[in-house]
Design a protein around this nucleic acid. Structure first.
Lengths: 65, 65
DNA sequence: ATCTCGTGTCAGGTTTACCTGACATTCGAG
DNA sequence: CTCGAATGTCAGGTAAACCTGACACGAGAT
């Protein structure tokens, strides 16, 4: 699922590890998300949206909309 | 994660199996969601939102909002 | 009373999200 | 040139989401 995670992260000058710590996940999880290897759980998607102050749909593209 | 799935489903007169077929998941998956045993994947959450014509956040409570 | 339909629940299996740890590469700072 | 920081990538593990199949139970219809 396409997403703007890498864009949002680097716009804030955060490293992958920074972001992982802020979200409570590992760096590997960040890598997998940024490189579209995984889709996040809904709970993690909510945490990401809260962290960046954007709705989930503007960060993770909804293929069923 | 608290959700309104059962409410939305029965409001439409659908069985758990009906809903599962419309969403492309098993009846067990529906049961697990309705009884809060599982959180959905983001992709499934998007399919559910599309099916009921509501945003994800009004169906699945966001504990990080 | 029986039959059916919807639901609840158990058992066991597969896939995927997420984990830790290790190492190679690149690149800017000193 | 060297060092450290950030990233990429691999290997192997755990946990949760999802699967199929089976059976018990209650409520309604016949």
């Amino acid at each position: 699922m396409k997403n703007r995670l890498k864009e949002l992260r680097s716009a804030r000058g955060w490293t992958q590890e920074d972001l992982g710590k802020r979200l409570g996940v590992s760096r590997q999880a960040i890598i997998a998300l940024e490189s579209d290897k995984h889709d996040p759980s809904l709970d993690l998607a909510y945490r990401i949206a809260a962290l960046f102050g954007e709705p989930v749909e503007t960060i993770f593209e909804n293929p069923h909309a």
